[in-house]
Write a protein that binds this DNA or RNA. Structure first.
Length: 434
RNA sequence: UCCGCGAUAGCUCAAUGGUAGAGCAUGCGGCUGUUAACCGCAGGGUUGCAGGUUCGAGUCCUGCUCGCGGAGCCA
């Protein structure tokens, strides 16, 4: 049996009446004496095999007794449409092949605490809920790559080890780098993506990013994935056009191809169906007005906190773009609004239902002298940014881009209450294992 | 770093300051359509750690460790 022709659970419906062989792990088993049910999980789904005493040799019938939860085994038998079976199909078992008997499996088919499961993340990934989440994550990432690919973007990945802070704000993970002193794990690939945009016009980078902040919330990981497009000859409006088209593409792809998974997750997709262009665009000032109207004591000039973002996003039935923030709360490389130099040409996209900021972007400062002044104002070491300043010395153009956090996007689309379930092996302040 | 909550069987939890228990899991037995199957029996505990109050502490007090949620920071 070649890999190509192997039958997997997700395809058994195409083999009704045929004798097939499935390979997988025991999800659960049930018995009523002379009739026995084996539930096999093979990574694509779960199907039940049924054996009646006398319909198979006794030695095959008795292998049921040896199989423990998560034991690896093969099932041979004829596929039958059966409404009483989970999934609608079942296997009339003719043979059972045991590959390995599992030790007592710690994750029983019942409720467990988060800590217990997190300690066994390598096993937890086998459960149907985690399986559904990872399948959605995969589809989101494929949609991201397809989106940029279809629009002529070039993938240009940025380095993970960097000589200095990209934005000079957050705490970074530090390591020794041979004889060259300290290196830092990247917190953003954006500056390198800008170099890419000047070389290729439209690029994106997509990789892990690291923040050593001691954040302890349901929205933070110390290692997370971010996709960052960067486009030459683009302003803030172009950036927002790209972001809304991007979000619509991702969400609609998942709705179309991951209906089953969203059902497993019991996700109410009402808000997701609404994610279609155009998305509402409001200014920072208008967002502040919303907060004031809702009785929030908010001072102009601050950045929004988690609860502020929730209140703002609750006013809309789809993600909302908030643009033109006070420059003081944004990064040094963001261009100022020519009509009001106190404002940065920045945009944050806030997801509905309290999921917060999933995209942060801006038009970049393209003037050499202004950018040097910003670096000085932020007290950043100019020599570390000389290569970045070169981008303004040699053919500078208006350009813009944004970053989308994968884990927050997965949490939002799946309707999860914590990002720790959105990545196979989460890294958090108090968790480095497994 | 700050604020709040928590830790009891392998797991999820219960137990007015007075004999530490249930469900699930595991083992054994039963059941010819099970759906986190069901029914019966059995084994399973240094109540996170250290100290204190008390005739008596899982329960009250102090300290510590670990975890969870939130703030700040951010995607």
């Amino acid at each position: 049996m070649s890999l190509i022709n192997r039958v997997y659970v997700e395809n058994v419906g195409a083999h009704v009446g045929e004798e097939v062989e499935l390979r997988g792990w025991l999800y659960n088993k049930r018995s009523s004496g002379k009739i026995r049910f084996l539930l096999m999980r093979d990574g694509t789904g779960i199907v039940q095999g049924v054996m009646v005493k006398g319909s198979v040799p006794d030695e095959v019938f008795e292998r049921f007794d040896a199989l423990t939860q998560e034991s690896a085994f093969g099932l041979k038998g004829k596929v039958r449409k059966e409404d009483r079976a989970p999934g609608g199909y079942e296997l009339e078992v003719s043979d059972v092949v045991i590959y390995s008997i599992a030790h007592e499996y710690p994750i029983a088919p019942k409720e467990h605490g988060v800590e217990f499961l997190a300690d066994r993340r390598h096993l937890w990934l086998r459960s149907s809920r985690q399986h559904a989440i990872m399948r959605v994550r995969h589809r989101i990432i494929k949609a991201i790559r397809d989106f940029f690919d279809e629009r002529g973007f070039t993938l240009l990945d940025s380095p993970i080890l960097t000589p200095a802070a990209c934005e000079g704000t957050t705490t970074l993970f530090e390591t020794e780098y041979f004889d060259l002193g300290k290196a830092y794990l990247t917190q953003s690939g954006q500056l390198y993506a800008e170099a890419g945009a000047m070389a290729f016009g439209k690029v994106y980078c997509f990789g892990p990013t690291f923040r050593a902040e001691k954040s302890k919330t349901r929205r933070h990981l110390s290692e997370f994935w971010m996709v960052e497009p960067e486009v030459a000859f683009a302003d803030l409006n172009d950036d927002m056009d790209l972001a809304e088209e991007f979000l619509e593409y991702i969400v609609q792809s998942v709705l179309r191809d991951r209906e089953r998974e969203l059902k497993v997750l019991e996700r109410n997709t009402t808000f997701l169906q609404n994610v279609k262009c155009p998305l509402p665009r409001i200014t920072y000032d208008e967002a502040v007005e919303i907060l004031k109207r809702k009785g929030v004591a908010f001072e102009w000039g601050n950045d929004f906190g988690g609860t502020d973002e929730t209140i703002i996003s609750e006013q809309f039935d789809r993600p909302v773009m908030v643009h033109r923030y006070p420059a003081q709360v944004k990064a040094f490389y963001m261009k100022r609004d020519p009509e009001n130099p106190n404002l940065a040409l920045a945009v944050d996209v806030l997801a509905p239902e309290g999921y917060g900021e999933i995209i942060g972007g801006s038009q970049r400062e393209d003037d050499l002298d202004t950018l040097i002044r910003r670096i000085q104002e932020h007290q950043l070491p100019q020599e570390a940014f000389e290569w970045y300043l070169d981008l303004r010395r040699y053919g500078t153009v208006p350009h813009a881009g944004f970053g989308l956090g994968i884990e927050r996007t997965v949490a939002w689309i799946c309707g999860l209450d914590h990002v720790r379930e959105t990545i196979p092996f989460p890294r958090m302040i108090y968790r480095l294992t497994p």
